[in-house]
Design a protein around this nucleic acid. Sequence first.
DNA 1: GTCTATATTCCGATAGAC
DNA 2: GTCTATCGGAATATAGAC
Lengths: 203, 203
Amino acid sequence: MVNKKDDTTEQRILAAAKKIFLLKGLDGARMQDIADEAGINKAMLHYYFRSKDKLFETIFEEVATHFLPRITEIFESDKSLFRKIEAFCEVYIDQVKQMPYLPFFVLYEANKQPEILVKKMFGAKKPPVQLFVKQVEEEIKKGIIKPIHPLQLFLNMLSMCIFPFMAKPMFEQAVGISKKQFDAMIDERKKLVPEFIIASIKK
Amino acid sequence: MVNKKDDTTEQRILAAAKKIFLLKGLDGARMQDIADEAGINKAMLHYYFRSKDKLFETIFEEVATHFLPRITEIFESDKSLFRKIEAFCEVYIDQVKQMPYLPFFVLYEANKQPEILVKKMFGAKKPPVQLFVKQVEEEIKKGIIKPIHPLQLFLNMLSMCIFPFMAKPMFEQAVGISKKQFDAMIDERKKLVPEFIIASIKK
DNA sequence: GTCTATATTCCGATAGAC
DNA sequence: GTCTATCGGAATATAGAC
């Protein structure tokens, strides 16, 4: 249970809903689970947020936009490409580590209803991927890195940062390592992934 | 609706259930959806497969073990490491392209009930990752590739092959490209990913 | 605002006719 | 084997007392 004493009821509900929705998804989560987690009655959920769907939307928006600010910050800085790649991987892996179910949650729900939810996410401010693309193109021209489709590079970077969290249970079983060993691997990746990328594109 | 005329009822149910479960997951799928998709009555689902859970298990096992044989084949071949990496990416991306929701489905359900489902998947034959690990270690000793944790290399390869399919709707929205453009990117990746990997580890 | 009790809806599962 | 009709339970949502 989350903060039974402190905070307002509304805050407790939001914290509880976030936890349960992240873990179980919209369909899997029960209003009772959320009420229990918040230490209040089921009816209160409807009092504060009209319906399950409304509550879910609130959580989704908050959580889906969670990363954007810090990513934007990195992309808009005046760092060199290599330093940006290092910063991106470090920040991203660190953040997801604190909410390992977040990628699944966001991508799963985005898959089920692409139109609505995804647009809500990027409604105001799209992530400044264009800045990254431009910078890659420039460095290619300058002869600092080998030619590569900038979006493919971006996709490679994203993949290697996020996917391991999603594949964790399967991977542990498939290759026969413990949770501890896997977590150690994840920590290593904050340095390893940028090295791997830079080694590949550096001239 | 799938093959209303041909095939037996059981086959139609299996095809329909696969489609619906892959798209919506266990919780999200409705027996009514599956019945509609198969062009039969809800009661028939229970006649052929006792319960929703039983039907789901049938689908999960079939679908989860779909990749193992071809992957095993590649790993057990006597190809060089670079050729194996190329073959793996090519086969994997090609296969997933035909069932783009499969990775999500498998990993999502594996996350919700790791113990049961994951073990069912690898019950008989685990994927021969050890062969890959050995070969990487040998090539490092021989000085053909740079030192790298073999499992990290494997995880990088998996990530770049699978993740793009899971992120598709989000990625398209975020960077503002069409489905067609994205599909073209995916096709490119069959060559690009192995090149990217080999460029990174080659001495 | 918060609770208990209850209404309502939805869905998996079954009974029984054909 | 296939259907219609219905049951029973679970989950969302509401009414109403405090």
